[in-house]
Amino acid sequence: MSEQPPTPAAKPVGAPEPEPIRWFGTSWVNRDNGYWPRRVAVSAGALVTAAAAVFVLRLGVEGVALSDNGGYLNALLTAAVAVCSMMAVRRSWKVFTEGKDQLTGWMAEDRSLGAVWIIGGAGALLTYFVRSLVEAPGEALKRASYERAVAQYEKRQAGRSGRPDAKAPGRGKRKH
């Protein structure tokens, strides 16, 4: 007779659920269900996409260089691409390490900076690649939040004794 694997314990009602991460779902909690192959695939995908973005930017810069507008315009365009990339790297790193709600000032969601984030997209993708070498981007934030929620839930559950679903005597009755 073969042994059956143990069935996972049913989660109690009200227990905190981990938030899914794009590309990883909730596999980041226990680092199971294909977490590692996905980490490798996401890292490789970010690197390939960043290379494609750099190639497209290079074509654009070379197109301007071929127009014979002078060295000043070429230098200005190269500097603009570099500045946009640095801004995108800084913003992306801050989102991955501190969370989107920590963005302030010029890094906050501002539609007028959309072109900056597009031009700096290669830098943001390289940031995603570097961060995915350490962990799934955003995993540390989600893990800290989830562990806090679990600790609070366990603390609330430890405070209950007897029948936790039953109401305390005298509660819920109205005195007239």
Rank of each mutant, 00 (worst) to 15 (best):
A52L: 14
G99Y: 04
W106C: 05
G105N: 05
A122S: 07
V42M: 13
R171N: 09
V64G: 00
V54R: 08
P169F: 01
A88E: 10
V29G: 09
W117N: 12
G159D: 10
F55I: 07
L76Q: 06
A15Y: 02
T127V: 05
G60N: 14
E3I: 09
G120I: 04
C84Q: 01
S145C: 12
T7C: 11
R143L: 15
L126E: 01
K173W: 11
K173D: 10
T104Y: 02
Y72K: 13
I119W: 08
A53C: 07
L57V: 07
A79I: 08
S67H: 03
D101W: 02
D165S: 05
K173Q: 13
G172K: 06
P169N: 03
P37R: 06
R143Q: 15
S85D: 12
D68F: 01
F24I: 04
I119R: 10
A168H: 04
K175Q: 11
M1C: 07
D32T: 15
R171Y: 07
V116T: 11
T49P: 10
G60H: 12
Q152R: 14
W23V: 02
Q102L: 00
G162F: 05
K94W: 00
A124H: 14
V83M: 14
T49C: 13
T104S: 05
R148E: 14
S85H: 12
E147Q: 15
W28N: 09
L125F: 07
A80E: 13
G162R: 06
S27C: 04
Q152N: 14
I21K: 10
W117G: 08
V130W: 05
V40H: 06
G34D: 00
S92N: 09
G172F: 06
V130P: 04
G71W: 10
G162K: 07
W36I: 12
T104D: 02
A80Q: 13
E154W: 05
L73P: 01
V150P: 10
I118V: 13
F96I: 13
E139I: 07
K11S: 10
E19W: 05
F96H: 15
V29L: 10
A75I: 05
K94V: 00
V83G: 10
R160C: 06
G63W: 04
A122N: 03
S2W: 12
A10E: 15
P164E: 02
A140G: 01
W93E: 08
V64A: 01
V95L: 00
N74W: 10
L113T: 13
G25R: 07
F24R: 03
